[in-house]
């Protein structure tokens, strides 16, 4: 009876409804906080960097003089690192995903590897840097060459790729592989000709996202001792290199000494974000275009 009464007493009811709508506004504004910061960040970076972003900046070599400095070396370094990261993560990542989804017997071992992968995904990137420093740079003697950086970043983003490739493989309906097996195809024939082709668009989407992560990573590179003040361009896997995020890092730090460096950092950030934007657009395009209508 209490309840009925309280509903009847409309002033109390109105208060509750008003409270609801006030909170609704608060929840909405909270959602906007992140987006407002994002907008400020982008406006700020554009405002600072756009004026410095010209052809000479993109194609120029590094220089201590802010007016003459360019980021071609960093761009090339990032490209070279990706040349290592892409094949390594694709082969190891997709191979692991196929093994886990299609070959491994469901059981202790499979769940052990799955747990291990999700733990690896949570390891701070700087720890991968130390692994790379110890194993690739020192033990294998790769120093701070492209290969050392590429392999370190590949290990770092591998869990992301494995998990998304596993999801992609899982989404391929069983009746497709059944159709293939029922025609006398072997397991591997079925995987290679039916399951993988059906999963490839999602796998590509996932690998582009993993790649974006690798492109923006800085911490492991600092541990590897990747230089920022590097004038020569890298020409191969064993060359020393620098990368876009490293360039941003040093220019940001040194902006307290030379104010213009902040603008150079902002201009480089524009290049980096643009690169990520393009990659993500490609990923979304692939996802929409090839979405299977199973």
């Amino acid at each position: 009876m209490d309840k009925l009464e309280s509903i009847k007493s409309s002033s109390k009811m109105n208060a509750r409804i008003r409270k609801n709508s006030i909170w609704k506004s608060i929840f909405f504004l909270s959602t906007l906080v992140g987006l407002v910061v994002l907008a400020i960040l982008i406006v700020r970076v554009l405002g600072q960097g756009l004026a410095w972003l010209d052809w000479d900046f993109l194609t120029g070599r590094l220089s201590t003089s802010a007016e003459r400095a360019g980021i071609m070396g960093a761009i090339l370094g990032t490209v070279w690192v990706m040349i290592v990261v892409i094949p390594v993560t694709l082969i190891v990542g997709v191979g692991t995903a196929i093994y886990l989804e299609l070959y491994a017997k469901k059981g202790k071992f499979q769940s052990f590897i799955a747990t291990n992968i999700s733990n690896l995904a949570g390891v701070p990137s700087i720890v991968y840097g130390l692994l790379g420093l110890t194993v690739f740079s020192r033990l294998m003697g790769l120093g701070n060459a492209v290969l050392a950086g590429g392999l370190t970043l590949a290990l770092l983003v591998l869990p992301i790729l494995i998990v998304s490739a596993q999801e992609a493989l899982r989404a391929v309906p069983g009746y497709l592989s059944e159709a293939s097996l029922a025609m006398g195809a072997t397991k591997w024939q079925t995987i290679r000709r039916v399951v993988l082709p059906a999963a490839i668009p999602s796998i590509l989407t996932g690998s582009i996202l993993a790649l974006s992560r690798a492109i923006g990573e800085t911490a492991p590179l600092t541990v590897l001792g990747i230089p920022a003040l590097l004038i020569p361009f890298p020409n191969g896997l064993f060359d020393t290199f620098t990368a876009l995020p490293m360039q941003i890092y040093y220019w940001t730090l040194d902006s307290s000494l030379v104010a213009e460096y902040a603008n150079l950092a902002a201009a480089t950030i524009i290049v980096l974000l643009l690169l990520l934007f393009i990659l993500n657009s490609v990923a979304i395009f692939i996802r929409n275009k090839f979405q299977q209508r199973y």
Binding site: Y175, L176, E178, A179, S180, L181, A182, M183, G184, V194, P197, A198, Q292, R293, Y294
Partner: peptide
């Protein structure tokens, strides 16, 4: 399975 073909309940052509 090369000598024995199968047709399933739900049509399952490849994409």
């Amino acid at each position: 399975r090369t000598q024995v073909g199968m047709v399933f309940q739900k049509a399952n052509p490849f994409p």
